[in-house]
Every structure is written in structure tokens, then in C-alpha cells.
Computed example of a mutant assay.
Amino acid sequence: MKESEVRQHVTTPLVNPAFAPVVPRFTDREYLNIVYRTDADALRAVVPEPLKFEEPLVRFEVMKMGDVSGYGPYTESGQAIPVVLDGEHGEYLHAMYLDNFPATASGREVSAYPKTIGAPNLYVDNGALVGTLDYGSLRVATATMGYKHNRLDTAEATAQITVPTFMLKTIPDYDGSPRVMELVRTEITDVVVKEAWTGPARLQLFEHVLAPLADLPVLEVVSASHILTDLTLAPVKPVHDYLTGARR
């Protein structure tokens, strides 16, 4: 393979890429979102500057992907933290667990999504929408919400899932020092909200050393939503370089 041909490949392994080089379109992406109040000191320990938070809130999410071009269906769960950067409100993606390796590899290599393998699930049980997350054989999160109790305004649902998203992109050099360390920004585009609901909700987080969701403890459930949508993820753009201190 010639050098010019090598440069045309952007995924690894070279001749057997872990994921397809496509921009995925999400069809029938189903969200269970629970926003909860947590300990402010715990948030300060994990939110990287220059991001700031105004209230000690966390959004726990379980997302069931009905159909994703390039990856197929899968389920994902994690925590997002409402933050502010230079007056712009958004969310910092703190942790993501999913059951699809190509989507995990793509999210980490192409973008900066903090993805790792887990076993999330989203289903309806006896009048409740249930979201769970297992790490290995152990349960680390259980969320329940009244199933389709009250309709949520479509505009509000759209606003919830289209806030800018911030992530930390780190690529180590061969000596272990950081080669790339950037704060990046992305957003959701081409959104079609098909259904949106709200209702009462509960959330339990369980201690696990390798899946430390409970380090951001649940003090009070603030709100919940259940949203079905189609959408596309925009490419990431760097907004802050930690190695030079420069804003982009």
C-alpha cells in the first residue's frame, strides 16, 4: 500500500476498520432523561475549567437507538452536567456506557465522547418506563418514570436535546505525555421530535469503582422526560487548548 493510499484511511485497523467512516443518522432515538440535584463539591471535582456550572445538576440519560446508519441498533447510558462557557449554556458529557463496540470506537476516535462498554437497557414494565445500567454483572443505575403520564411541549423537548455539548479530547503521545488535550464542542442537528412526555421519576445509583456514577449522588430529582426523535450529530470543533491555554 502506497503512502498516498495510507493517508486516505482515517480508521484503525488499517484494512479492517472498527467502524464505518460515515456520518450516522439516528432514527427512532428514544431518551429517558432524569435531571437531579447533586453535591456541588462532587461536581467541582470533575467539571474541567474553563467550564463552569451555575447549579449542582446532573442529567442521567438512557438512550435506545432504534436504527443508526453504520452501527445498527444499540443502547447507551450516562451522565451529562449542565455548564456554561463564555456565556453559552450547554452540557459537559461526563460518562457514557453502551453495548456497541463500533459506536464506542467511533465516538472516542473521531470525536471525544467519553464512551466505554456497558450494558444499558430501556423498557416498559407495569406502567413504568425503566432505564437500567449494568457494568459487567453488577447494577450501577436504575431509573423509573411514569409511562406517558403528561405530554411535553415539542419545543421544550427539542430544546432539551439540542443544547451544545462539551467534551474533553485527550490523545497521549508515545512517552505518555498529552499530545492533544482540547475541550471540544458539538451539537445535535436535523431534529424531528416524534413524541415527548414528562412525569414523576426516581433514580438510584449504586457504588462501583470502575463505573463511578454514584460519585455524583442523587439528592433530589428535579425533572424527567421521555422523548422519541430522529437526529444527526454535528462534527466536533475545538474551543480550548489545554496545552497552550488558547481559546479557539
Rank of each mutant, 00 (worst) to 15 (best):
L168H: 06
P164H: 09
L183S: 11
T186G: 15
D175R: 01
M167E: 09
V184I: 15
V184C: 15
P178S: 13
S177T: 11
V180N: 05
A157N: 02
V184Y: 05
V180S: 12
M181E: 10
V163H: 07
P178Q: 15
T158W: 09
R179F: 10
T170L: 13
T165G: 06
A159K: 15
T165S: 00
P178F: 12
V184N: 10
L183D: 04
T170V: 05
T158E: 07
S177A: 09
E182P: 01
A159D: 15
E182L: 08
V184F: 04
F166A: 03
D175I: 03
T158C: 02
R179V: 00
S177M: 09
V163F: 03
L183V: 08
T162W: 05
A159G: 06
P178I: 07
G176K: 05
Y174I: 12
V163P: 01
K169W: 00
P164G: 04
G176D: 06
E182M: 13
M167R: 06
L168A: 03
T186K: 08
R185M: 14
Q160Y: 08
V180R: 08
I171Q: 01
I171F: 06
S177W: 02
L183T: 12
P172Y: 09
P178L: 02
P178N: 12
P178E: 10
G176W: 03
T158Q: 14
V184E: 10
G176Y: 04
V163K: 12
E182R: 14
E182F: 02
S177H: 14
R185D: 04
F166S: 01
V180T: 14
T170N: 10
I171H: 01
M167S: 08
F166R: 02
Y174V: 11
D173P: 02
D175T: 05
R179A: 13
P172H: 08
D175F: 07
G176M: 05
R185C: 11
L183Q: 07
T170I: 09
Q160T: 13
R185V: 01
I161F: 02
D175K: 05
R179P: 01
V180E: 15
T186S: 14
T158L: 15
A157F: 07
Q160V: 03
R185I: 07
M181V: 08
A159N: 13
M167P: 00
K169I: 01
L168S: 00
Q160S: 07
S177I: 05
G176N: 09
V184D: 11
I161T: 02
L183C: 11
D175S: 10
T165V: 11
V163N: 03
L168W: 07
Y174F: 08
T165A: 11
I171W: 05
P172N: 07
D173Y: 06
M181A: 13
